[in-house]
């Protein structure tokens, strides 16, 4: 027990994450986002997300690792519509990681907030702690109708009942790119080599994915943009996703 506690303390020490090989980060330019939900569909296809059905949806049990939140600003007729794609922020100081009693969710060496399905016992504490509400619980073992099971991604587990799940930054693609880098005897993955499903599908290229530890990567440049901000920054979760504020030119 003492060793587990020591590990836990070391793990929560500030500066622990600086040693990471990579620091996967995403930047989302809200000026470019049209709210088309292509990312939502792409994520669904890539990560074997189940369709929960109408009844479960009404009970707010839908599973969408990325969703488009819609905000109206101002009063009619001076009204503006704003979209914010919301997905797991992969916080460096993630509240969900403290919550888990079985260490099923933890921060790995790439700065990813990961969820180990096998370890999860389904207490759902992490979902309660998450201020972004991007963790989803499998209330049932969902099934795919006959031809649809053929399109399941073999690189992603089909989750079962009683397991929490969330955005992984398409870790299977990260793994694949690292594998390719090793084959070419490259030490690091090239910038732009990895594209999560949402980034790949974005028609306006509002999303950029890359390594923040590399100062020359595209995402690092985006992160230095003065429009950049983090969602719910005041909670000190230090999210890995940088949003670029939308600028209304008409005043």
């Amino acid at each position: 027990m003492s060793t587990a506690l020591e590990k836990f303390k070391k793990y929560r020490k500030p500066g622990y994450y600086d040693k990471f090989d990579y620091h996967w980060t995403m930047s989302i330019d809200l000026d470019r986002c049209t709210g088309c939900e292509a990312c939502v569909v792409a994520c669904q296809a890539e990560n074997n997300l189940p369709i929960v059905g109408e009844q479960q949806f009404a009970m707010r049990r839908e599973i969408k690792w990325i969703r488009i939140e819609r905000y109206w600003e101002g009063e009619y007729p001076d009204i503006k519509l704003q979209f914010i794609p919301m997905l797991c922020q992969h916080c460096d100081q993630a509240p969900c990681e403290i919550a888990c009693p079985v260490f099923a969710t933890y921060h790995n060496q790439d700065g990813l907030n990961t969820q180990v399905y096998n370890r999860c016992i389904g207490t759902r504490t992490c979902a309660v702690y998450c201020p972004y509400e991007v963790r989803f619980f499998n209330w049932f073992t969902y099934e795919w109708d006959e031809p649809l099971e053929q399109q399941l991604n073999p690189d992603v587990t089909v989750r079962e009942k009683g397991v929490m799940e969330k955005c992984t930054f398409c870790i299977q693609r990260i793994r694949q790119a690292k594998d390719a880098a090793k084959d070419d005897s490259r030490r690091r993955v090239r910038d732009g080599e990895i594209k999560p499903a949402c980034v790949q599908s974005c028609p306006t290229e509002a999303m950029v994915f890359g390594d923040l530890n590399d100062p020359d990567s595209q995402v690092s440049k985006m992160a230095r943009n003065p429009r950049g901000y983090h969602v719910l920054e005041e909670l000190n979760t230090t999210p890995s996703i940088v949003y670029l504020k939308r600028v209304h030119t008409d005043g």
């Binding site: 090989d21 060496q109 990813l112 990961t114 180990v116 399905y117 587990t157 870790i171 793994r175």
Partner: peptide, 10 residues
């Protein structure tokens, strides 16, 4: 990274 869960689990 041989002992990272996500090296082998998916």
């Amino acid at each position: 990274n041989g002992r990272d869960c996500w090296t082998c689990h998916k």
